[in-house]
């Protein structure tokens, strides 16, 4: 039997939610268009984490290219997490945020790469980056 080793159709998220259990995402782009000083960032939540982001596994946000305040710096993951904490988390932010980073046990992927290879909090975001957060704190 010469069966392929990839057994599963690539239609699922691989993130532990089903399309039935999650309403479709409403991207920021559906509401307004991106301005020149914003980045378009795509976010996806796995391992049940979408439950604290308005039950939506996928979000598209427009993030300012530079951080607000006096000593502005280019938007990085540290800023993204702070932004998400203020604007996106719908409940129980302690399940997501820990200090200026994410809670231990939450994996972060930047364009499909482990964030530990990309500088973690210091990674400087680019337009159309895809950031995936997966909780491993739930049961398996």
């Amino acid at each position: 039997m010469a069966q392929p080793e990839t057994l599963v159709p690539a239609s699922t998220s691989g993130l532990g939610y089903t399309s039935g259990s999650a309403p479709a995402a409403s991207p920021a782009s559906a509401v307004r268009t991106r301005t020149a000083d914003e980045l378009e960032i795509r976010l996806e939540f796995g391992g049940g984490l979408h439950l604290i982001f308005s039950q939506q596994p996928k979000h598209t946000i427009f993030l300012p290219r530079t951080t607000p305040g006096a000593d502005a710096r280019p938007a990085d993951i540290r800023y993204l997490i702070a932004y998400m904490k203020d604007n996106l988390v719908s409940e129980r932010e302690d399940m997501f945020v820990d200090g200026e980073g994410v809670r231990p046990g939450i994996l972060v992927l930047i364009n499909d790469a482990d964030w530990e290879l990309e500088g973690e909090l210091d990674y400087v975001l680019q337009d159309r980056d895809e950031i995936v957060f997966i909780s491993t704190l739930h049961g398996g």
């Binding site: 990839t6 599963v8 159709p9 690539a10 239609s11 699922t12 998220s13 691989g14 993130l15 532990g16 939610y17 089903t18 259990s21 796995g46 391992g47 049940g48 994996l107 992927l109 499909d112 482990d114 995936v132 997966i134 909780s135 491993t136 739930h138």
Partner: peptide, 13 residues
């Protein structure tokens, strides 16, 4: 978790 994600396996959290 990484394996399930990269292989796009069907599971439920």
């Amino acid at each position: 978790v990484m394996y399930a994600y990269f292989k796009k396996l069907t599971y439920f959290s």
